[in-house]
Nucleic acid binder design. Structure first.
Lengths: 338, 338
DNA sequence: ATGAAAGCGCTAACAG
DNA sequence: CTGTTAGCGCTTTCAT
């Protein structure tokens, strides 16, 4: 079945194909009668606009490239949900790419986006990315770029993230207010900005409430259940005394709770625990896990909205890059309650 | 910055743009020397192929439309992960669309896919979809269509799903083997095929082990924690005796466990519970939840692979539609163990 | 092995 | 209000 084009419609009506095109695009200088007739024939012939041709000619594709480090993470899936919802309402479609935290894949994805002539790119930078060359390439091509979560100021593009510092502060403050005197913090690789910020929030909360920062209460590792268990084992072996624990992400906090249970140490009675990220499981384990919500769906929505706002008049890069910072939300559950 | 095209490269080398095109596409009848030279200049000028033009002319876009009912569900996110991984390795990019379980949205999405001249569509049908018109439209356009999970035979297209019947059977059989005499089943809307099949598996397991099917042990409702709690409340009020429970999905099973805990009924000692879907939280609650794994990532991978295989020689619809049925996997955890 | 030429289906500037 | 015309950047057939 040969695809029907505007030429077929034109022939049917004895008008030119450009009139048809205008009618279909609801151009003001086309009579209502013609529009009506064109639409009728278009429907009858089952016409489908060829967006590829349209994109080639007009230079606009109505496609947005969305790049995430990891499609396996709830956080990024929620972001995609937010972006897709808003973008779709505004007539854009999502071209999806996963960098798998690799700079190479990321570069390939961005190449694909540029080659596909996307109208913009919304991305969260892969952990493996040191050289930002491929991101500069986007700007050089004058393609709107927006970064979320794993953002970096150096690029000078709009960003949406949450206030990790504030999240860390809230978590630590919450434990302090719940009577904790010696609060352990488990963190990770300090060149991931969010983790560093959470740590900083913790430190400043201690300072503000006149608590000392104690080296023996700080741990580092890779986000995992195992990390949490290990830390508790170490604390136990070294007989280090503590009554609160703030883990930089929920799975680590989960490991902590599991290991404490094995040692028969009661949460929250003896140790109060809080995580970060508000993973789905936290509400269902017992005791349920207090945590900091990152508003991931909202982050996606805000990213899309900011993008659309800045792109409205096609002066995306004209002003200093706007930065949206979302408030983290303290979720108080059983694990931290006195 | 004006985009560089094959014409620019041609000018630079004093050859025609068609030679450049051929060189870049590694056409056999181009000398190695020319190819080399072209590639060098292309790199130097930072040439980026315009896929839009290529797609328009060739009729192939290397884009696959992926439609899911709900981007908020872990299940579909895992499927997307599987599809993206395999498709990406094979040079395809994913155009993503969410139907939100609405037939209208779904139709709009499929229109977009067709207008974007995708090379194929991989979809899971929205719950709200009764009329399959828009899916027939895809076939009429001779665009390869593959359905996963929410598949329907009527369309006569390749499908990938898990054996829900077998899953239901495995779940019920597992409870029987763990000594359960009276097994409750919670299901839902029986016009969702998967749910009906799970129920059928349950019934046949009972039959095979010479257990009667008892109406008072069967419940229906909308997948939710509340549903699980409600059922337990009803069973409790009516003082119905039971020692096993198979919920058609994990959140319902979670509600069951929560309510049993409130009644101080011990799982698994007094009641053994199993869910379906292997949601992330199941491993972390206590007692941990036994369930049936749906192999969602694998389902996505298999969908992509089958699509690619059938599309290899561009005779996608030439043979009777291939059906892949994945085996559900019984995950034995604490909630069902004697 | 390379060149010439046509055209995919549309948008948009210009002309009337 | 409608028609004419010229491409967008590429693939591909037919010549040479």
């Amino acid at each position: 079945m040969k695809k029907v084009t505007i030429h077929d419609i034109a022939k049917e009506l004895n008008i030119t194909f450009s009139s048809v095109a205008r009618a279909l695009n609801d151009h003001p200088s086309i009579s209502a009668a013609t529009k009506e007739a064109v639409r009728e024939v278009a429907k009858r012939l089952n016409y489908q606009q060829n967006k590829v041709a349209s994109a080639l000619r007009s230079g606009r594709s109505n496609v947005i490239g969305v790049m995430v480090p990891n499609l396996g993470a709830t956080f990024f899936n929620s972001i995609i949900l937010g972006i897709e919802t808003v973008m779709n309402e505004n007539g854009y479609t999502i071209l999806l790419y996963q960098s798998s935290e690799s700079s190479n894949h990321e570069t390939k994805g961005i190449d694909t986006f540029l080659q596909s002539r996307v109208d913009g790119i919304i991305s969260s930078i892969a952990m493996g990315t040191k050289d930002l060359q491929h991101y500069y390439e986007i700007k050089k091509n004058d393609i709107p770029l927006l970064l979320f979560d794993r953002a970096v100021d150096e690029l000078g593009v709009p960003t949406v993230r949450i206030d990790d510092y504030r999240g860390g502060f809230l978590a630590a403050e919450h434990l302090i207010k719940n009577g904790c005197k010696r609060i352990v913090h488990i963190s990770a690789d300090q060149n991931v900005k969010s983790f560093k910020e959470r740590f900083k929030g913790y430190k400043d909360a201690l300072k503000q409430y006149n608590r000392p920062l104690e080296k023996e209460l700080i741990f580092y590792g890779k986000p995992s259940i195992e990390l949490g268990r290990d830390c508790i084992k170490q604390l136990h072996e070294k007989k280090i005394d503590f009554d609160g624990l703030f883990a930089f992400e929920d799975y680590t906090a989960l490991g902590v709770m599991q290991q404490l249970k094995e040692y028969n140490i009661k949460v929250p009675d003896e140790i109060r625990v809080i995580g970060f990220a508000n993973e789905a499981f936290g509400a269902y384990i017992s005791p349920s896990l207090s945590t900091i919500d990152q508003q991931s769906v909202k982050m996606g929505e805000e990213a899309a909205k900011l993008f659309l706002k800045l792109n409205k008049d096609h002066h995306y890069y004209d002003n200093p890059p706007e930065q949206i910072v979302l408030e983290p939300i303290l979720i108080e559950r059983e694990s931290s309650h006195i």
